[in-house]
């Protein structure tokens, strides 16, 4: 059952909280900026990624993917805070279906992560990646869609997480591997077989390739395929999160 008003309410809540929390916005950008500036500048002259692209250009969509991954996942996992501070009960006891709750929350996380990524996008524009207005619009849409999947994934994880004890585990064993084992930092062709397998099983790979196609006009796979896989991933995560939240003690 989909309840539009409830979805909008929870969506807006995420945005309000995001806007009120400047430190969270800036904090989320630190590491990706470091990656972009340091790796980008450091390897720019060493690496040839082909296609007439500089490594810096190549890296930009990957680092944007990183912002979306971390921003989205953290936003989803933040439900654990709501649980600890009791606010989750207020939502769970309201006449709002679990599906609506998860959708509203996921849209909220997707929007806020997209905003963070947009800040990075503007920065990359400033340092030489060139995009026309159509590309910018497509990028914003793609970024939102990618963050949607990661937020839903964070929510699904948080549904079974009662406290922050497992948090470091999630960062180290899910988020970091997802980032490093995607095509965010290196081109997908000519990888050793094990890494090829790992990247192809990683949903993040497809999001990054989709953005690379939009921003740079080239990618190592058919963008239609990337979009299809991203969409399937989003649907799966959304369903999983809604299902997990409908299980009660």
């Amino acid at each position: 059952m989909i309840q539009t008003e409830a979805i909008l309410t929870l969506w807006q809540r995420e945005i309000l909280r995001f806007v009120r929390n400047k430190s969270r916005i800036i904090g989320g950008l630190g590491t990706p900026l470091l990656f972009l500036l340091v790796l980008g500048s450091g390897f720019d002259r060493l690496l040839n990624v082909g296609g007439g692209l500089s490594y810096f250009q190549f890296l930009a969509p990957g680092v944007i993917g990183m912002v979306l991954l971390f921003g989205g996942m953290f936003s989803g996992i933040n439900v654990v805070y709501d649980r600890q501070f009791g606010f989750l009960k207020e939502i769970l006891v309201a006449p709002v279906s679990r599906a609506s709750m998860v959708i509203g929350r996921t849209l909220g996380g997707a929007t806020t992560a997209m905003f963070q990524a947009a800040i990075l996008l503007v920065l990359t524009l400033l340092v030489g990646v060139q995009l026309d207005p159509v590309q910018i619009v497509l990028m914003v849409l793609a970024m939102t869609w990618i963050a949607f999947g990661f937020t839903a994934m964070g929510l699904a994880i948080a549904a079974k997480l009662t406290d922050f004890q497992g948090f470091q585990l999630i960062v180290n064993f899910i988020m970091m591997p997802m980032f490093f084992l995607s095509g965010a930092l290196y081109p997908l062709d000519q990888l050793p077989p094990w890494l090829q397998t790992a990247t192809s099983l990683n949903p993040m790979t497809y999001g990054v390739e989709l953005m690379r196609f939009i921003a740079l006009g080239q990618s190592s796979m058919d963008p239609g395929l990337a979009l299809a896989i991203q969409t399937a991933f989003n649907a799966l995560m959304l369903w999983l999160a809604a299902w997990l939240f409908s299980q009660k003690e």
Binding site: R13, L16, R17, N21, F85, G86, E90, V93
Partner: peptide, 14 residues
């Protein structure tokens, strides 16, 4: 139904 929980259940950032 309506409920007032024993433990706090508000969003303190709002």
């Amino acid at each position: 139904i309506g409920i007032v929980f024993q433990d706090e259940s508000i969003d303190d950032e709002l």
